[in-house]
Amino acid sequence: MTQYKIPESVLVVIYTPAMNVLVMARTDKPEFWQSVTGSRDTPDEPLLQTAVREVAEETGIDAACGVLTDWQLRNVYEIYPVWRHRYAPGVTQNTEHVFGLCVPEGTAVTLAPREHLRYRWLPWREAADLCFSPSNTEAILLLPRYHQPEIMSAL
């Protein structure tokens, strides 16, 4: 039996108190840079748990080392045709839930080699310019609205 992806996912913008953002190049499309993304494992998996799991799987970062916040943003978008085979027949749209994770400067990154080739920490505007996904770009451009320096200064 084929295990299809659930068309509900998280997008996690990982950034530092100085608003440098982690972006990663995809293994299957090296020209595509992105933040952490991933689908729920089960329909009832809490979105916060999905975000924590995906961050750990893709970057090796334990979300407990920083401050993870649900930005209460939802994006519904058309799934790129190149990736539709991962979803049940007839599924063409995904609902994405946006989170931010502020981590200390110098946080180590260990990429999942099946998912990403390389990574960069970039100032937020440069990171936004590099992303291939419009919703990822938009989320990074919203970072100044969600960044909370008073909470992040404890990192």
Rank of each mutant, 00 (worst) to 15 (best):
M1V: 07
Q3A: 10
E8S: 07
Y15I: 09
Y15L: 03
T16I: 13
T16W: 13
P17G: 09
N20D: 15
V21K: 07
V21M: 03
L22G: 03
L22K: 00
L22T: 01
L22I: 03
M24S: 12
M24F: 07
M24G: 09
A25R: 13
R26Y: 06
K29H: 07
E31P: 00
F32W: 14
F32Y: 13
W33K: 04
W33I: 05
W33D: 09
W33Q: 05
Q34T: 14
V36Y: 09
T37S: 07
G38K: 08
S39Q: 12
R40L: 15
R40A: 10
D41W: 07
D41I: 08
T42M: 07
P43F: 04
P43V: 07
E45Q: 15
L47H: 02
L48D: 11
L48R: 12
Q49R: 07
Q49M: 12
Q49N: 12
Q49Y: 07
T50H: 01
T50V: 14
T50I: 02
A51M: 06
V52S: 09
E54L: 10
A56R: 14
T59H: 07
G60F: 09
A63W: 09
V67E: 14
L68R: 05
L68P: 01
D70E: 04
Q72H: 10
L73C: 05
R74D: 03
V76R: 13
Y77E: 11
Y77K: 08
E78K: 06
I79G: 04
Y80R: 09
P81D: 05
P81I: 04
P81K: 01
P81V: 07
V82T: 06
W83N: 11
R84K: 10
R86W: 05
R86T: 03
R86S: 05
Y87N: 02
Y87V: 03
A88Q: 08
V91Q: 09
T92I: 12
T92N: 11
T92E: 12
N94L: 08
T95W: 00
E96R: 01
H97F: 10
H97G: 00
V98M: 02
V98F: 02
C102H: 09
C102M: 14
V103W: 12
P104N: 13
T107D: 06
A108V: 11
V109K: 01
V109R: 01
L111Y: 10
L111Q: 08
A112T: 06
P113M: 09
P113Y: 10
R114P: 02
E115L: 13
H116A: 12
R118I: 06
Y119F: 15
Y119Q: 11
R120V: 03
L122Y: 11
W124H: 15
W124D: 08
E126K: 13
E126R: 09
L130R: 15
C131P: 03
C131W: 00
C131G: 02
F132Y: 11
F132M: 08
F132C: 05
S133R: 04
S133H: 04
S135G: 02
N136F: 00
N136W: 00
T137P: 00
A139H: 06
A139E: 01
I140G: 05
L141A: 05
L142R: 15
P144W: 08
R145E: 14
I151K: 14
I151R: 15
M152N: 15
S153I: 15
L155M: 15
